[in-house]
Simulated scan of single mutants.
Amino acid sequence: MTLDRVKVGQSVVIDTFLTPESSAEAIRLGLVPGHRLTVVHKVSGGPVVVRTAVTEIAVGHTLARQIDVRPANP
């Protein structure tokens, strides 16, 4: 599943990035494989706001479609 399909309130773990470009962009935002994220807000066709351990980040829709995630264990 990709980040753009995660429901608000759901926690996930980043698995991988689908392209080298999306990997570079996500890493610049501080998003790396293995990090746990919680989706706190979504705009249809727009950004996905996620909470990490230390901050909230707005991830553009195009990038969110390139971040492969899996459900986080409780």
Rank of each mutant, 00 (worst) to 15 (best):
L37M: 02
T19A: 07
V6C: 07
I67E: 01
G60E: 08
H35C: 14
V32I: 10
D15R: 14
V13T: 02
F17W: 05
T52Q: 02
F17M: 03
R65D: 06
A58I: 05
G34F: 09
P71K: 12
D68R: 14
T2S: 09
T55W: 03
R70L: 14
E21F: 11
P74N: 12
G34H: 05
P20E: 08
I27L: 07
A72N: 08
V48F: 01
Q66I: 04
G60Q: 08
V12Q: 02
T52H: 05
A53G: 10
M1A: 11
H35Q: 14
H61I: 06
V39D: 01
E56T: 15
V8K: 12
K42N: 10
T16F: 07
V39H: 02
E21D: 09
L37A: 01
V54H: 10
V12N: 01
T2D: 07
F17E: 00
T16Y: 09
V50W: 04
T55L: 08
V32Y: 01
S11Q: 15
E21S: 12
I67C: 03
R70N: 10
V50F: 06
V8W: 03
V40K: 09
A24E: 08
V12S: 05
V32C: 00
S44I: 10
S44L: 12
R70I: 15
K7C: 07
R51M: 13
V8F: 02
V13D: 00
P20Q: 06
R28H: 11
V69L: 07
M1Q: 08
G34M: 06
G9N: 05
V43W: 03
A64I: 00
I14E: 04
S11P: 04
T38F: 02
G30R: 06
R65A: 13
E21K: 13
P20D: 05
S11F: 06
V48G: 01
T52Y: 00
V50E: 01
G34R: 10
V69K: 04
Q10L: 05
K42G: 05
S44T: 11
P74D: 12
G60M: 06
K42E: 10
I27M: 09
S23M: 14
V59D: 05
D68N: 08
V50Q: 05
T2F: 10
T19Q: 07
E56D: 11
D15M: 11
V40I: 15
R28E: 13
E56P: 04
R70C: 09
V12T: 06
V32M: 00
L29A: 02
Q66M: 14
G30T: 11
L37T: 02
V48P: 00
R36V: 09
A64Q: 03
L63F: 05
A58C: 01
I57T: 12
L37D: 01
S11V: 07
A58K: 13
G60Y: 01
R36A: 00
R51A: 15
R5D: 02
S22Y: 00
G9F: 03
V8D: 01
V12R: 04
V40A: 07
H61E: 08
I67N: 00
A53L: 11
